[in-house]
Design a protein around this nucleic acid. Sequence first.
DNA 1: CTAAATGCAAACTGTTTGCTTGGAG
DNA 2: CTCCAAGCAAACAGTTTGCATTTAG
Lengths: 157, 157
Amino acid sequence: MSRQRRLIIRVLSEARTHLSAADLHQRVTELDPDISLATIYRTLTIFEEEGVLKRLDFGDRKMRYEQADKEPHDHLLDTTDGSVVEFQAPEVAALLATIAARLGYRLDGYRLDVFASPDDSRAESARACVTAVQPPAKRPRSRHHHHDGREHSAPGR
Amino acid sequence: MSRQRRLIIRVLSEARTHLSAADLHQRVTELDPDISLATIYRTLTIFEEEGVLKRLDFGDRKMRYEQADKEPHDHLLDTTDGSVVEFQAPEVAALLATIAARLGYRLDGYRLDVFASPDDSRAESARACVTAVQPPAKRPRSRHHHHDGREHSAPGR
DNA sequence: CTAAATGCAAACTGTTTGCTTGGAG
DNA sequence: CTCCAAGCAAACAGTTTGCATTTAG
C-alpha cells in the first residue's frame, strides 16, 4: 500500500467526526503536503467499495465517510449548530419494514436524517456531537422534509 | 406573470411525477422552445420560497419538486425500477420525535427515503408509482444507508 | 520489471449568478 | 415608462477521469 493510502487510513481512523473528501484532504495535507484531491477521492471510493467505509449524504452536496464497522445507527443533525449525533434505534428499521410490507414491498434499506434542536427543558442526556454540517446557512432557503404532521421546516442549511 | 412562468406552472401541475429542473426544462421546451434553464431554476427557487413547491432530494444529486399543498407524506423508492411511491405514515414522525426527545432534542423535521423492492409474495396492494429515479445504475457503487439491522444496501443509484 | 497508484489538469453535472435585453402592467 | 423577469454565458462546488509518471512489491 502506498504512503498516501496509509496516511489516509490513519487520518480517517483518528477522526472522530464524519469527514468529507475536502476535510480529509486538508488534514492529510498537513501531515504530508503532496497528496492530491484526486487520490483522496479515488481512495475513498475504493474503500467504500471494499466495504471499509460507508458514504454518508447529509444533503449538503458533499459526501462524508465513516468507518463501516460501527454499529448500525442513524444521524440526528442539530439544526442550531450543524453538529451530528449518532443514535441507535432499531424501531426505525422495524417500522419502515412494516410500512414497506403494508405497501407490498420488502425493505432494502433507507436513508434517514433527523433534524432537531436542543430541548433545554430536558436533561442534556447523551449529547455526543460528532460532525459539523454546514453550521452557517448561506441562503434562507429551507430544506425539504416535513415532520410531526403540520410543519415542514428543517435546518437553515 | 410571464409566458414562461405560466408555462412552468402548467407543466408542473400536469406532471404526475416529481420532476427535476432538467425534466421540467425538457417538457417545457417541447411546448415552447425558448425557455432557458436558468429561468427554470430561478422560477423553481421562487416557487419554493413562496411555499408553492417543495424541494425533494432523493440522493441522486438532482433536486426534484412536488406541489407543496399535498398531504404530508414520505417516499418509498422501488429499487428495482426507480419508481417512487408516496405514503403517509404519521408513526414515523411520532417515532422520530420520541427518539429526538430521548436524546435531549426537539424534532424539527427529517428526511427519509425508504428503499424497497416489490414483495411478490404479498398482494400488490396500493402500488401507485410516481417518479422514476435513475432506473439504470451507472456504477455498482452502493448508496449508503442501512436498514433492518445487519445489511446496509440500497438502490444501485 | 510490471502492474498498480499518484499528480495534474481538464472534464462533468447540477445549479447559481452577473449583466444586458425584453416584456408585462 | 418602469421594473420585474428572461436569456446567455460564465462561474461554481463537488466529484470524476485521461494520461503521463512514479512507485510498491
